[in-house]
Each structure stands twice: as structure tokens, then as C-alpha cells.
Design a protein around this nucleic acid. Structure first.
Length: 579
RNA sequence: CGGGGCAUAGCGCAGUUUGGUAGCGCAUCUGGUUUGGGACCAGAGGGUCGUAGGUUCGAAUCCUGCUGCCCCGACCA
């Protein structure tokens, strides 16, 4: 009889399972990936993929390839080491900062380890494409990226070296870019559906690159590093950093209190002020000072948000008067410009520009610092005590806020960013002079889009969503193997061995990826390992069962095992697996 | 880069306070008994105690420098 191939046999496959949880793994996916023997760490943020883990990576890549190919994106492979010249041409050699790992070769020429590939692909496209007739085009690659993260963490979730699918599209017009952007968005939906993830596309910030459209795809998980705001009554979802906080609809109430200055020596924070003077927190205002834009006549600018609200730094940066990147004023700057210290700051008697949040504009009878140390004003009212300043959306949305889409209220959940689609526009094609001739024979910069998926991060994200006390629970499309055969007494019982091998052959012939646990281990050890590694289906073959004409079957999520007839087991299992 | 913690056998840890030359559990190897949920008995191997220096008759232990890793804040797939 033909025996199973070595790589599918547990006795020849590296099973590097760990009983105990390594102490430096914080999140569940990191713990389980180490315990299941999928990865090992080489240095902070650098991991090796062991055979089991790599099989899962390949499953993710396969799905991505199929969907990318089906929307007409062409696969390429670019170098991970890139020449500095390209980055200097785009301006990012200076812009990118220390996250870009720069290296020199033996001739002292400068290179970097590629964190992304806009420069390389733009350089290729500008050299190869001449005419608008060749557009649009779309290229993708699945490749190792390197970003010298300040703080790698959570295992493969935020590592320095990681595998990413990145795609870049080129267009003669904005509308063509928007068409491809939509195609890519749709492809991403298919990819994340097939990956079996609980995810949401969310509206994202365009960052400093600008451009008109950007969506992130987030896997919902409590260990996520981003806050996502959802409408409870529509499809609206946005990263909190870019979710609009609507202006309150109710008009400002009439003033009822007189403006009074109060001694508040022990109230340096809103929390202390609220507690000591029994004020509603919605009647207090936080005043934050940040550095003013370089072309401003002032050194600093005041930003006001309600006491219970959080300043949104990205929104603040978008104000013309505010310096980018956002920089908080130093105590010295406060003293020289205001004459008071943090803890007693407010909008009255200021000689610097003031921008207030929309919700602050509708407040009345509120309190804020007096710009005199240890004093606050109570009963402040706009247009009576001071003029209404410039109004802007400055705060983070909160749970319960009305949704910016107009229907429903917002709730906030944590998300792991696993994908990003982005309309880049002309940034790189202008900087690098990437042009084609249009139908009038005129040279035109190409519009660009870029589209990323974090391949290795998806593996971790999937585990965050799919596990139990016994280990990983792989969705069908990601499982390293589709089924585990666990024979008992495989080494001693000819019956068991022949029956197991026959079932193996039959399942393999049906196109199933079978893992055969032929180790000389006690049953409990095998069961525990198969569950830890997340095998979706398990069949136990024993002398006892063979005599009764049955195998024992258990799905990874089933609570009960069941006996199945050994005569039509193969067909039954194939149906189970394909279901 | 700032703040905090850790570094002793492959993994998880004790020993450090009070210096006397390293131990426990798991794993590994050998023999035996076991064999449907991480077995048991007997035996064995494995550590320049992260690294460099200092104090001391003597350092895992006390002192100093360095390195690595992890956690909390700014980046992003």
C-alpha cells in the first residue's frame, strides 16, 4: 500500500507546540502562535515562520492572489532594498523619518529597506508607459516589508518585518482612478469575506498625502489599536480620528449666571474642578495651547473643547492657524504668552488666536480658567463676556454622538487595521515626473491609487477572533490542514495503520489536505496538540472503532464527538469539510 | 526617544533581601510498566546565572558600565 507523504505526517513535521505560555507574549494571538509552533522570534519585531505558520500565510496569500488577479491586477515582485535616489526624487527620503531603515552598500551608496513601494513602481511605470491608451494599469506584489517601528508589539501584529500585499494603479483621469478604487474596494470585500473575518470598511483620514478617498478595513477585536465609530442604524463606519463630530442642533441657551472669578487653588484639572465645585462636566471647558503655524503672527493658538471631550489632534492639525505636526505649547511658552500655567487657562483676556469646538460654541454659563494662576471664571457666556471665536470640529466623537451620516447614534469599538485603499492622486507622479501622452498629444501626470493588505497581520487578527481555551480555531479557508487523522496505536496495530492510511489516501485523492498524527504519543497529547493548532476537523481511528465499523468524528467547535460509519466515512468527511 | 519592568537549563520559575560556588516543574535521552484527554517508576544528560569590569579569601547574590527583551505614550498593513 502507498503510505502518506512525509510532510503530512506528524512524525516528520515540525510540531513545536508549547504547554506553557511564553511570558513575553501579551495578546492571545501572539501567545497561541507561539504555543502552536507557528512562529518564533529572532529579535524585537522580527519573526521566523515555522512550517505550520507558513502554511497559513500561504492560504492568505492564495486568496489575495485569486481576487487580485480576477480584477485584472498584475503580479510583480520588486526589490526590498531600494536606492535612495528614488526616495530623494519623491521627497520622502527627508519626509519619512527614522522608520525608514537606511543602509549603505560596500561602495558607500545609500539604500533603504522598503517600507512601501510607491517610488519603485512609479519609476517602472514612467519608464515603461508612454500613452494614455496603456492606462489604466494595476500592479500588485506580495512581499516582505520593513518598517523600523518605534515599538514593535503584539507579535506579528505590529512587527518590523512583515508580509504585505501592496498594489498600485495608474490612470489618465481622476474618474478612472475612482473606478479602479471602487473595483479594489469590492475585491477587498471579497477577500476579507473569504478569509472569514468579522471586519468593517471604515472611512479613514487621508493623512498628509491628501487626495480625496481612503478607506481602511478593520477587523473587530478588543486588542485592536484603533477606535472605530459605527452608526447603530446605518452602514456608516469611520476611524475615530476622522469621524466628524456634528455641531449640536439645539441653540445656545440664554445666559442666567453672572460672570464671576473664583479662587480654585487645588483645581488643576477638569476632574478636580468638577469634583470640588460640584459642576456638571458639560459646563466646563478645556483650553489647550498649541504652536501656531509658521506664517502666523502669533507663537501659540488656543483650542477649546468641552471638559468631557477629547481633542482630536488630526482635526486640530487641519486648522490653518495650527502648526503641523501638532505641538503642544511648553510651560515657558504659556507663561510668556498668557502669564499663567496649565490648570488655570481659559478664553477670557487672551491675546492669541482662539479656535473653539462646535459644541463649545453652544455652551452657556460655563466655567474655564481665568488665565490667572489658581483662578477660574464661572458663568461665562459667549457674546456677553467675550466675542464668539472661530469655530471648528476639534474633538473626537464619543459613544452616543449622532452619526455624521444623519441616521443613528455612534458606538465605538476597537479595530485592527488589515487593509487600506487610498486614492493618492498626483503626489508621486508629479514629484517623479511620471507622465504619459493624452489624446491631444499633451504630457500628463498619471493619477495613482495604492492598496495595501497586511498578510501576516491577518493571520494574527484571525486568531484574535477565532480561539477558545484549547487553542486556535481556524476558519476553513485559513486552516493549515483541513482535517487531522488521529490513529491510536498506529505503530502497533496493523489494522489501525492500514485503515488510517487508506482513509488518508481516499481523502487526499478527493483533494483534501490531511494531517496524519502518527506520533507515538498518548491520545491526550495528540488531541491537545490538534486542538491547539486549530485543526478544523478530527477523526480518531482505533481498534475499538474498527471492530464496531466506526470512526470517531469531532469538529473543532463541536461540543460532542460522534461515531460515523467507516464504510462511507470519506464521503461524509469530504462533505463536512466542503460545507 | 521618554517612563516602568525583566534577564538563572529548550519552556515556566525559585534562589538575590542576609555573599559560601545552583535548584524545582515541564521538556529531552535510556530502561521498564502503561495506552481514548497533556501517564507512572527508576536512572541520565543539559546552565562560564545576558555581558564587561569592580568590591571580596569567596559573587547568581553587592557596586558600575553596556546589551537584549517586555510593558505604557507619538507611527501604520
Amino acid at each position: 500500500m502507498q503510505r502518506p507523504e512525509p510532510t503530512m505526517r506528524a512524525s516528520k513535521f515540525l510540531i513545536a507546540t508549547l504547554k506553557e505560555t511564553p511570558s513575553d507574549a501579551e495578546v492571545i494571538s501572539h501567545q497561541l502562535m507561539l504555543r502552536a509552533g507557528m512562529i518564533r522570534q529572532s529579535a524585537s519585531g522580527l519573526y521566523s515562520w515555522l512550517p505550520l505558520g507558513l502554511r497559513v500565510v500561504r492560504k492568505v496569500e492564495k486568496i489575495i492572489r485569486e481576487e487580485m488577479d480576477s480584477v485584472g491586477s498584475q503580479e510583480v515582485l520588486m526589490p526590498s532594498v531600494q536606492p535612495a535616489e528614488l526616495w530623494k526624487e519623491s521627497g520622502r527620503w527627508e519626509e519619512y523619518g527614522p522608520e525608514l531603515l537606511r543602509i549603505k552598500d560596500r561602495h558607500n551608496r545609500e539604500f533603504c529597506l522598503g517600507p512601501t513601494h510607491e517610488e519603485v513602481i512609479t519609476d517602472i511605470v514612467k519608464k515603461e508607459l508612454r500613452s494614455y491608451k496603456q492606462l489604466p494599469v494595476n500592479f500588485y506584489q506580495i512581499q516582505t516589508k520593513f518598517r523600523d517601528e518605534i515599538r514593535p508589539r503584539f507579535g506579528v501584529m505590529r512587527s518590523r518585518e512583515f508580509i504585505m500585499k501592496d498594489a498600485y494603479s495608474f490612470h489618465i483621469s481622476k474618474s478612472s482612478l475612482q473606478d479602479t478604487y471602487q473595483d479594489m474596494f469590492d475585491a477587498y470585500v471579497k477577500i476579507f469575506d473569504r478569509l472569514g473575518l468579522d471586519y468593517r470598511p471604515v472611512i479613514a483620514d487621508n493623512g498628509s498625502i491628501g487626495g480625496s478617498g481612503s478607506h481602511e478595513f478593520h477587523v473587530l477585536a478588543s486588542s485592536g489599536e484603533d477606535d472605530i465609530a459605527f452608526s447603530d442604524q446605518s452602514d456608516y463606519a469611520a476611524n475615530v480620528e476622522s469621524a466628524e463630530a456634528l455641531a449640536p442642533t439645539e441653540a445656545r441657551a440664554e445666559a442666567t449666571q453672572a460672570l464671576t472669578m473664583v479662587d480654585t487653588p487645588n483645581a488643576k484639572t477638569i476632574a478636580a474642578l468638577v469634583e470640588q465645585f460640584d459642576l456638571p462636566i458639560e459646563k466646563t471647558v478645556k483650553t489647550l495651547f498649541v504652536e501656531a503655524a509658521d506664517d502666523s503672527d502669533f507663537e501659540i493658538v488656543a483650542l477649546l473643547v468641552r471638559g468631557d471631550h477629547q481633542l482630536n489632534e488630526i482635526k486640530a492639525e487641519h486648522c490653518a492657524q495650527v502648526k503641523e505636526p501638532l505641538t503642544f505649547a511648553t510651560p515657558e511658552q504659556l507663561l510668556s504668552n498668557i502669564g499663567a500655567s496649565a490648570g488655570s487657562l481659559g478664553p477670557i483676556n487672551l491675546k492669541v488666536p482662539v479656535i473653539i469646538d462646535r459644541s463649545v460654541a453652544t455652551m452657556s454659563d460655563f466655567s474655564a480658567g481665568a488665565n490667572i494662576d489658581d483662578k477660574h471664571y464661572f458663568g461665562i457666556n459667549w457674546e456677553r463676556d467675550l466675542a464668539l471665536p472661530e469655530i471648528a470640529d476639534l474633538r473626537n466623537v464619543q459613544e452616543g454622538d449622532p452619526s455624521p451620516c444623519g441616521t443613528g447614534k455612534l458606538s465605538i469599538k476597537r479595530g485592527i487595521e488589515v487593509g487600506h485603499v487610498f486614492q493618492l492622486g498626483l503626489k508621486y507622479s508629479e514629484a517623479m515626473n511620471a507622465t504619459v501622452l493624452d489624446e491631444n498629444g499633451k504630457s500628463k501626470n498619471m493619477y495613482m491609487g495604492c492598496y495595501g493588505i497586511g498578510v501576516t497581520r491577518i493571520v494574527a487578527a484571525s486568531i484574535e477572533q477565532n480561539h477558545d481555551d484549547n487553542g486556535i480555531i481556524w476558519p476553513a479557508n485559513l486552516a493549515p490542514f483541513q482535517i487531522a487523522l488521529v490513529p491510536l496505536n498506529y505503530d502497533k496495530s496493523t489494522e489501525v495503520r492500514d485503515t488510517t492510511d487508506a482513509l488518508y489516501q481516499a481523502l487526499t485523492a478527493a483533494g483534501i489536505e490531511v494531517f496524519l498524527d502518527d506520533r507515538k504519543e498518548r491520545p491526550g497529547v495528540k488531541f491537545a496538540d490538534m486542538e491547539l493548532m486549530g485543526m478544523p476537523h478530527r477523526v480518531v481511528i482505533s481498534d475499538r472503532g474498527i471492530k464496531a465499523g466506526t470512526f470517531e468524528y469531532k469538529g473543532r467547535c463541536d461540543t460532542e464527538k460522534q461515531d460515523i460509519s467507516s464504510t462511507d466515512a470519506c464521503q461524509y468527511l469530504v462533505e463536512k469539510i466542503r460545507a
